[in-house]
């Protein structure tokens, strides 16, 4: 009987260690901790071209992460990309006339949205639209323009 009891205790500890490992994977390794933050608000922004922007890409302001891309779709009338952004709830004082641009982290890194604060007194709220946007820099276009101007100069 004693033997049986200690077996049960050890098995219980084994299961507890397993759950602790899964918990560590969830909280420390994955982005599950972020989901808890999701009770923020959603804003949309329309871009002419989003380049390689992906869902879940970071949204930063002055380099600080303030949200993430929730959804990307094509506007059927303007043929622009409509990007929905999940903003974290603690950043609720971002001016209404904030500008959004798409940047690339490093030369070959992933693309993210950078926000630049405006001067408006009112703040962005759920459902608002960011009007001032700047499309992604597509490397091929830049190289093409460069070659074109170079050829013109000669």
């Amino acid at each position: 009987m004693m033997q049986n009891k200690s077996t049960e205790i050890i098995v219980g500890m084994f299961v507890a260690v397993g759950i602790a490992a899964l918990f560590m994977l969830a909280m420390k390794v994955s982005n599950l901790g972020e989901y808890a933050d999701e009770a923020g608000y959603q804003v949309t922004a329309e871009f002419q071209n989003i380049g390689g922007l992906k869902v879940r890409a970071p949204v930063t302001m002055a380099g600080v992460r303030v949200g993430r891309v929730a959804d990307i779709s094509l506007d059927p009338t303007s043929y622009n990309a409509e990007v929905t952004i999940d903003m974290y709830s603690q950043y609720d004082n971002i001016p209404l006339d904030t500008a959004a641009s798409i940047y690339t982290a490093g030369l070959l890194g992933e693309q993210y949205i950078g926000l630049e604060a405006g001067a408006e007194e009112e703040f962005l709220q759920s459902g608002d639209v960011i009007y001032l946007t700047q499309p992604a820099l597509v490397l091929e276009q830049v190289i093409g323009q460069f070659l074109y101007s170079k050829a013109e100069g000669e």
């Binding site: 084994f14 299961v15 397993g18 490992a21 899964l22």
Partner: peptide, 14 residues
């Protein structure tokens, strides 16, 4: 046991 062991393996590996 198998999922528990795999979770422990990943956690310890990290």
């Amino acid at each position: 046991s198998m999922p528990i062991l795999a979770a422990i393996f990943s956690a310890v590996g990290i």
